[in-house]
Design a protein around this nucleic acid. Structure first.
Length: 434
RNA sequence: GCCGUCGUAGCUCAGUCGGUGGAGCGGCUGACUGUUAAUCAGCAGGUCACAGGUUCGAAUCCUGUCGACGGCGCCA
């Protein structure tokens, strides 16, 4: 049994007998000859079935087998210009393992219908290619951190508190109490660094945002890191290095997939050749002011501004020092920064070609006073964060961390117009099926 | 939460001024021994999202409801 890609790549000598298996991808027939094209996880290959070369019943089956029927084929590998891909198998045996019902996905497909039939649509060449890239991205993230001495540290998924703002929690019954699905591992990571110092993880993250955009999921995978003794600058450099590493691994492993997806690979190649710049929030505002986009100092960058910023760059860019007032409670003020108001030791990384936020991180505040004050500002009861505050009482150290949106990175690398295609079964504000 | 678009055959859509619901694809039957989304002939397939209203008559006009999709806000 050999994979289809080997035949298509010409690795099987002309005329050799091969056996392969897969699913019918396209099918045509003309009297005594049929051309089912088979698909497996490695590629697609035309099978030529001629009446007379095999039992009549098998020939009839090859004509009748609808798209997605599963089959096992024996025959000779043959180089032929008329075959899509240049190679085909001339069948001497054609066994249908499972006849398919008419496949619901035909040539006219709406986005909605494909999502409704996601369990079938993931068989498509497009989705298969994306899932292969995803495999590389996830593997690269593990490799990156492990090679640099980080320990994998897994947080609980059921968590009692919020971290990123109140209204976006998924509530879960916990026997006769309430708990919530994780929005971030961060509070637990900050506990973990006192044991392991440098840690990372990749875990599902849940945000009950009613977002209907091309870059939001309510269940997504976040790859996070946290390190003791690390300041903001070091942290941004790790993030840049990580993103660079991921892109490099994908370019090493997945060029055929990127081409199938129609991705302009040269743009990814290009961004590896330069350093990723770091600018401040204040500098970013000045940059886009020249383009005629005014944003009052103190307001958060929105989609519009982020797109405008990224028109100036062809690599990912780190933006640091956002106004403290609009940042989460754990991001500390930078007393040395020069800006129109207090700014935090925090950063986002924006991806080129659209300006999607792919990374967000910061130094973490070690001042109990400041934490209490900000929690109260956000309408939170500091009593609920006692364990987090405890961490500042027993040998506190400066530390930093960030989270990387796995699907957003995949979306950027693959050039997807919607993040929902970066995950096999997307969950959004309106969909949790199939 | 706000704004917008759309619900007609299994899928993608057309349906004029309110007058007996159409096409392409897919499926089925048949023809065809080199097709490239094959081609050709025929057949089947409908609660026009739902509820109410106007009218002799509603897919079409009005009101409401539901659903989907997209954009914004928020974020990774």
């Amino acid at each position: 049994m050999i994979p289809i890609s080997k035949v298509v790549a010409g690795e099987v000598p002309e005329g050799d007998e091969v056996e392969t298996r897969g699913w019918v991808w396209r099918t045509r027939s003309s009297g005594g000859i049929a051309f089912p094209i088979l698909r497996d996880s490695t590629g697609v290959l035309q099978v030529t079935v001629k009446k007379g070369n095999l039992p009549d019943a098998q020939f009839d089956d090859s004509v009748k087998a609808l798209v997605e029927s599963s089959v096992i084929v024996k025959g000779k590998a043959h180089k032929d210009k008329r075959a899509p891909g240049g190679w085909e198998i001339q069948a001497t045996e054609f066994k249908v393992v499972g006849f398919a019902q008419p496949f619901p996905i035909t040539k006219d497909q709406s986005e909605e219908w494909l999502r409704e039939n996601r369990h079938l649509w993931i068989r498509s060449r497009k989705m298969t290619a994306i899932m292969k890239v995803r495999h590389t991205v996830v593997g690269a993230i593990h490799q990156f951190f492990r090679e640099r001495g980080y320990y994998e540290f897994d947080p609980p998924i059921l968590q009692p508190n919020q971290c990123e703002g109140g209204s976006t929690l998924f509530e879960v019954k916990f026997y006769d109490q309430k708990t919530y699905l994780s929005q971030t591992w961060q509070l637990y990571a900050e506990a973990g660094i006192f044991a392991l110092e440098k840690i990372y993880d990749m875990a599902p993250t849940f945000r009950a945002e009613k977002s209907k955009t091309s870059r939001h999921l309510c269940e997504f995978w976040m790859a996070e890191m946290e390190a003791a003794w690390m300041d903001l600058h070091e942290c941004t450099e790790v993030a840049k290095e990580e993103v660079r590493f991921i892109v490099q691994k994908v370019l090493e492993s997945n060029r055929p997939e990127l081409e199938l997806l129609g991705r302009d690979v040269s743009r990814l190649d290009a961004c590896l050749k330069k350093p990723f710049p770091t600018i401040t929030y204040t500098e970013a505002l000045e940059l886009i002011r020249k383009d005629g986009i005014e944003l009052e100092w103190g307001r958060d960058l929105r989609t519009n501004e982020e797109e405008a910023i990224m028109k100036h760059f062809d690599t990912p860019v780190v933006v640091t020092h956002y106004p403290k007032a609009i940042m989460a409670f754990y991001k500390p003020v930078d007393p040395e920064a020069k800006a129109s108001g207090p700014v935090a030791k925090c950063f986002d990384m924006l991806a080129p070609e659209g300006g999607v936020e792919i990374v967000g991180g910061s130094e973490r505040d070690t001042s109990i006073e400041a934490l209490r004050e900000c929690l109260e500002r956000d309408g939170e009861n500091p009593e609920n964060y006692q364990f987090y505050i405890d961490l500042r009482l027993y040998g506190s150290v400066p530390h930093s961390g960030y989270g990387l949106g796995v699907e957003r990175v995949i979306g950027w690398i693959c050039g997807l117009d919607n993040i929902k295609d970066a995950i096999a079964f997307p969950r959004t504000g309106t969909r949790f099926t199939p």
